[in-house]
Nucleic acid binder design. Sequence first.
DNA 1: CAACCTGTTCGCCA
DNA 2: ATGGCGAACAGGTT
Length: 268
Amino acid sequence: MPELAEVEFYRKQWDCGIGKAVDRIHLNGSARIYRDANPRKIRKMLPGTTFRTSEAHGKQMLFGFEPNLWLAAHLGMTGKLLVAGPEHQPEKHDHLVIYQPDHSLIFRDSRKFGRIRFDQGKAPPSWWTELPPQPISPEFSRDRVTAYLARHPKSVIKALLLDQGGFPGIGNWMADEVLWRIRLHPATRGRDIPRSQAHLLRDEVRKLSFEALSIIGTDWSDPPDSWLFNHRWKDGGVCPRPTCKTPLIREDLRGRTTCWCPKCQIAT
DNA sequence: CAACCTGTTCGCCA
DNA sequence: ATGGCGAACAGGTT
């Protein structure tokens, strides 16, 4: 489910636990969720610490526990973070529950495409600090996007936008939204995108990231009907541009359902 | 029962 | 050696 803004929404769910102690944890040890972590270490080390910091980067989240522990979460397709009362009974897909005096913090993921990592150290782990710049960061420059497209001349732009190494936080609906806004066909190859349009792409990825964070990332409000978002899944959905209203196309592109307007977004 | 899914990663092939 | 592609992962929902 979650991309940039949804991740930010879920991250904040745990905020009520910041500054509070970890009394005990429940950890179901799912080998898949903990494929990059050592669950026994988490069981042993997390209780007795204090939850201090919370941060998101693209689709990743990092939570800091005093004195020196870092818990990272990725939500995959169906993951979510929830808060419940201190007596919460773990459900089938609650892979981690952190019990605090007044709340329990829950990581739930039915489909198990998500993951939990655990690191020890005074500073955040290097894999975290070395993540590529997010669209909302000033380092996400026009030159960076242009150079990225040049490195992937044969890939279609829809696939490139989903690459977290290039566009951290962008997922399926955001990719379609951006391409629709700049009128670029999703099957356009990297080499066929002129510099001017690469600049436009960078500007719009950045703008949509800010907009999505402020609308969905705060309280999961619905985006306005002027976005493609509200039309893309509807059978019979039409392009929301007032002067267009052309029926939208929904097709599989490199394994992902892709929605675009055949009139506004012309194939090259 | 079959198809679908807002994500990532692996192995194969050019 | 890389880049690009399809398949696989797992389980709920339509």
